Computed example of a mutant assay.
Amino acid sequence: MTNLKKPFLNFREAKSFAHSLQLKSREDWLLYCKSGRRPMKIPASPHLAYKEKGWVSWGEWLGTGIIAPQNRKFRSYKQARQFARSLRLNGVSDWQMFCKSGNRPDDIPSRPNSTYLGQGWISWADWLGTKNVAPQNRVFRDFKKARAFARALKLNAQSDWKEYCKSGSRPTDIPAAPHKVYRNLGWISWGDWLGTSKIATQLIKFKSFREARKLVRSLNLKSINEWKQFCIQQKPKDIPSTPDRTYRNSGWISYKDWLGISN
């Protein structure tokens, strides 16, 4: 006895039948096929039976309009990002809530970080247009331009800079930690950065112990108090105010020796 294989309906007729079932997903279709109600002229695997004969997607087969992610055509990265920024969302959680709301257009991906990877994607902050860009992705002004900006603020110390950064007025292309960002790109000191000419103690080049002591002894100071007053009023930059620390391992004996006091 010959086993004749009955032909299936053509794609359009079969699809029309599938639409009439009002199923919502491929899983629903599989359950329907298992129920035993599927006509013989309708294939259980339409994606195989109608391959290159009209098949597009399960969403198109069932009439749900749902298209598998890999088959969707999304807007270009710049166009999609422009749309995302227009929503004025504040973070990833807001974006996820928006996607769940049902208001997301079909040509805007719910996971842009995957869809546009290698096609322009930078960060969620860039996608949403927020200022919270991950440090490694920030683009700062070059050192000279950033320093000119910092000097224009006329701040007096590193502590003033920190307070300024906390105020929220700092532009995003000016780093809060310039000593780290510009470490090998021009950074000298906080005094240089702020334009105060102040140099951190560890960066000052002092006279040698003998040269410094010779100068100090020539002042004929009689006590440590007189030395402190001298430091406040007239001390040269290349003479340390705390010689006992600076010259601890390079000749220091005592303040009497430093000042040249015999008794």
Rank of each mutant, 00 (worst) to 15 (best):
F17P: 10
K228T: 12
V139M: 12
P69Q: 02
S16K: 14
L128G: 11
I42N: 00
Q79K: 10
S254Y: 07
A49F: 03
R248E: 12
L30Y: 01
G65P: 00
T172D: 15
F209I: 13
S159T: 13
T246M: 11
L62G: 03
R104K: 15
D257R: 09
N156K: 09
I108H: 13
T246F: 07
D142A: 07
G168C: 05
H47Q: 13
Q202D: 15
K166Y: 03
L185G: 00
P69F: 03
R26L: 02
Y255S: 01
K145I: 00
Y255M: 06
P175M: 02
R104E: 08
C165P: 05
P175K: 05
N90T: 07
A44H: 07
K205N: 15
L30E: 04
A157C: 15
I66Y: 12
F149C: 09
R213I: 09
P112V: 08
A150W: 06
K15C: 02
I67M: 09
I188G: 06
L185W: 05
T64I: 03
K100D: 12
Q234C: 10
A150G: 07
W127T: 13
R170P: 02
I67D: 04
K180V: 11
K198D: 11
Q70S: 10
K256V: 02
K235N: 12
S110M: 13
R183G: 04
P105Y: 13
R72P: 06
R12S: 10
S57Y: 01
N3M: 12
L62M: 01
L4M: 11
W190I: 03
Y116T: 06
E60W: 01
W127Y: 11
W124V: 00
N3I: 14
G186H: 06
S169Y: 01
G59Y: 08
I174A: 10
W95A: 07
Y255N: 00
S169H: 11
R85L: 00
G63T: 06
S223C: 05
T130K: 12
N184Y: 11
S197C: 00
N249I: 02
A150F: 04
D106M: 12
E226G: 07
I188C: 04
I66T: 09
S20Q: 12
R217C: 12
S93M: 01
A212N: 15
N3L: 15
T130R: 12
Q119I: 04
E52F: 08
K51S: 03
A157I: 07
V133S: 11
A44Q: 08
I188A: 06
N249Y: 14
C99R: 06
K256T: 03
M40G: 03
L4Q: 13
M1H: 01
A157P: 09
L62V: 00
R85H: 06
L215K: 15
N3W: 14
W258N: 00
F11V: 04
D106V: 13
Q82V: 06
W58C: 02
P236A: 05
